[in-house]
Nucleic acid binder design. Structure first.
Length: 751
DNA sequence: CTCAACTAGGTTTTT
DNA sequence: CCTAGTTGAG
């Protein structure tokens, strides 16, 4: 037995969980209760005390970030680097599938299609089937397809079950074609990674056994967010038998039913609620001591989440001080909200708590939707506060990055028609719809990939000399690098493709600001590649693609960077910050409208709110805006249900935070401020209000522009109308669009 | 075939 | 507000 003093850092419950190594174990870990610490210590304990080889341990998480953190912390505990499977569900499956691809009739280098690729595939199918994509959007089909895959309904089964009406037949048709297209392209989507792995296990007992024997100890993080297929994956691996026939089930799952926020994506909260039923003899350990937040923050979180029904009984407690109260600010509009938050960050940073240390990493602004980030970016940069935005448009979704990735994908996997179509005329090679159509039909008739058609010189020669020349060059390029990739450095391959494809030159010739920034992005991508190379000098193309395919934007951020963090509440799960802002606390935004479609939609939003509140260590702000412009429309709002549910005693003052400063542009009259009284939330009224909302909002917006006694003037301005109040231009109506203008436009007299 | 100009539609959350 | 798709002129 080694020294176990590293376990002293754990509290009794945590230690109990860490040292319980055999049989099924459920760790109900409340927010901030030292979940990761417990898990990593458990792994360390297995290795150091129970003589378990790291080789025999599998730990799965949902995010790369969580996997990375766990690995780092385990390494710290047991010393040297360990080659252990601490991976996300998807990357674990991907690894398994690469090894056994042939068994499933896939090529070893199958591609992984991201949502953009999926959309393209469905779009093409819709075109083939003459489906009006305005009536049925690609995402409509993809939603159903994904749902099917999560619940293991094959296209055949779907048709058998649902083939009744026209719409369902159409969906079934699309699903079937989607599936065969991916297979033909030697590609899998995210859902496939799990689905095919489960199928592999079920259809090949020997392979399953091989993994069962290897992974004798399995741990699952965020178990509350597992869906049906993930559950099956875990169950298959855990239901192993020992030599003497006993079921082993050394499965440890960790989670918190209050933090289940992915039900909309198929997560099944029952997995955690019924763990003890699924795995008889399971032991349950509850971690209820919170080490993260002040007592006030914890109480606030509790006052909100306790409105949910059907929770596992547990209550977090803490030794920490009460701390400051929660600040609520009801802003005029989203700009005012953003300026307030920027001001508060300045105030705290320069205040007694931080004494101007300039450490902006301590702040986070957590919003419901990515669309909200813009206003904050503006307000923060005006005040010179550094920030970084996570999520939103993914780095790898940028056109130029995707294009280069497609070049690389094609080199790796020539059957990837999607990639070829994307880059065949990028840069411009004079290949339009007609040429492409010809190639497509040929490929279809011959039953080969598009690329194979390009290699047929007879075909190529039939085009005009310019086109055929270009196509030959392209095909040659891909072919050459296909051969050379083996003994090439990854970054050289990238450079080679970038230059020899003409992609870089085409951008350089544009001489526009946009092209410049694209080139910059491509250079940045190169440094990403070089970074990977440094990590592993032998990294091949396949491995690189694999690593990058499953990367989310959130994983890409540098946590060392001194900046305020802006991200969605969803991405914030698992993180913590001393100072947290939760803007947009308005019905319709948070909780979002869609929450009312589902039976327990509101409960899920409430859990999201709980997640947000419990991210805060020291202080928490909540804000709302009385008027909000989102997606170009301005609407009046009302305060979020969650604000009403919050224990009002925990709010500073009586819930009203007096504004410290006014916006200097003077768009709003002083008399306009004032707080809507708190009324109990009434869902029915709320729904009715929604139907009348548009008309009311339009009338209200018009009335809001001026008050009785204001000097109002209209004037024609080109094709639009200018509205001026008290000598200041408020807005311009242009055709049917209303554009609010930045100040600085000339007053009417001067027009 | 390419480019620019315009229109229409869609906007929660992610591996 | 965005962007993706369409249209029409070169």
């Amino acid at each position: 037995m080694g020294r176990t003093d590293y376990l002293d850092k754990l509290n009794d419950k945590q230690r109990e969980a860490a040292m319980c190594t055999e049989g099924p174990l459920l760790i109900l870990a409340g927010a901030g209760s030292g979940k990761t610490s417990t898990m990593t210590h458990r792994i360390a304990y297995l290795i150091r005390e129970m003589d378990v080889s790291p080789y025999n341990i599998l730990a799965v998480t949902f995010t790369n970030k969580a996997a990375k953190e766990m690995r780092e912390r385990v390494q710290k505990l047991i010393g040297e680097g360990v080659n252990m499977w601490i991976l996300t569900f998807h990357s674990a499956c991907l690894r398994i599938l690469r090894r056994h691809a042939e068994v499933l009739d896939f090529g070893r280098d199958f591609a992984v299609y991201d949502p953009t690729d999926q959309k393209t595939v469905v779009k093409n199918i819709c075109k083939e089937l003459n489906i009006d994509t305005k009536k049925f959007t690609p995402s409509y089909f993809l939603g159903i397809i994904s749902h099917c895959k999560e619940n293991r309904i094959s296209p055949k089964e779907y048709n058998a079950i649902y083939g009744t009406d026209f719409k369902e037949q159409m969906v079934g048709n699309v699903y079937e074609r989607y599936d065969s297209t991916l297979r033909k392209n030697n590609a899998m989507d995210f859902d496939d990674l799990l689905l095919k792995t489960v199928e592999l296990f079920e259809q090949n007992e020997d392979i399953l056994e091989q993994y069962q024997n290897r992974f004798r100890y399995i741990m699952v993080d965020e178990y509350q967010d597992t869906n049906m297929i993930q559950y099956t994956f875990v169950k298959l691996l855990a239901d192993a038998r020992d030599r003497d026939g006993n079921v082993r089930r050394n499965l440890c799952v960790v989670g918190d039913d209050d933090q289940c926020i992915y039900q909309w994506r198929g997560a099944d909260i029952r997995n955690i609620l019924e763990f003890e039923k699924d795995f008889p003899g399971a032991k349950t350990v509850k971690l209820e001591q919170n080490y993260r937040s002040t007592a006030n923050i914890l109480a606030a979180a509790h006052s909100v989440i306790s409105h949910n029904k059907g929770r596992k009984a547990k209550k977090l407690w803490t030794d920490a001080e009460d701390g400051k109260k929660i600040i609520y600010y009801n802003a005029d509009d989203e700009k005012d909200e953003a300026y307030f938050i920027a001001g508060e960050i300045n105030r705290i940073e320069g205040g007694s708590e931080m004494k101007g240390s300039g450490d902006y990493r301590q702040f986070a602004i957590l919003y419901r939707t990515n669309a909200q980030s813009r206003t904050f970016e503006e307000a923060l940069s005006r005040r010179g506060i550094p920030y970084r935005v996570l999520g939103g448009l993914r780095y790898y979704d940028r056109k130029e990055i995707k294009d280069m990735m497609c070049y690389m994908r094609l080199v790796q996997n020539r059957a990837d028609d999607l990639a070829l179509v994307r880059i065949i005329n990028e840069p411009k090679r004079g290949i339009g719809g007609k040429t492409l159509e010809k190639l497509r039909t040929l490929a279809q008739v011959r039953g080969t990939s598009l690329f194979d058609v390009l290699l047929d010189d007879d075909v190529i020669s039939s085009f005009s000399s310019k086109v055929s020349e270009n196509l030959r060059t392209l095909a040659g390029l891909i072919e050459t690098y296909g051969i050379e990739q083996e003994n090439m450095k990854l970054s050289d391959l990238y450079d080679g493709l970038l230059v020899n494809s003409g992609y870089l030159k085409a951008l350089e010739d544009q001489h526009t600001v946009e092209a410049e920034s694209r080139i910059e992005n491509l250079m940045e991508f190169k440094s990403v590649i070089v970074g990977y190379e440094k990590e592993d000098p032998n990294m091949g193309l396949a491995e690189f693609m694999e690593r990058i395919a499953l990367l989310a934007d959130v994983d890409n951020h540098d946590s060392e960077e001194n900046a305020v963090t802006l991200m969605t509440l969803h991405s914030a799960k698992g993180l913590e910050f001393p100072y947290v802002f939760m803007p947009g606390m308005e019905d319709g935004l948070f909780p979002g409208w869609r929450a009312f479609d589902r039976e327990d939609g509101l409960e899920e939003e409430r859990r999201l709110c709980y997640v947000g509140i419990t991210r805060a260590k020291k202080r928490l702000w909540m804000t709302s805006a009385r008027m909000r412009t989102l997606y170009g429309r301005t609407d009046y709002t009302r305060e979020s249900v969650f604000l009403h549910e919050l224990d009002q005693n925990l709010l500073e003052g009586d819930g009203i935070y007096e504004r410290k400063e006014r916006r200097e542009d003077g768009l709003f009259r002083d008399g306009a401020s004032g707080r809507t009284p708190i009324k109990p939330f009434d869902q029915l009224k709320y729904a009715q209000a929604q139907t009348k909302k548009k008309a009311a909002a339009m009338a209200a917006a018009a009335a809001a522009d001026f008050a009785p006694g204001d000097k109002v003037a209209h004037a024609k301005f080109g094709e639009g109308t200018v509205l001026e109040v008290n000598g200041k231009v408020i807005r311009i109506e242009f055709k049917d669009q209303v554009r609010k203008l930045a100040l600085g436009i000339a007053p009417i007299e001067k027009l």
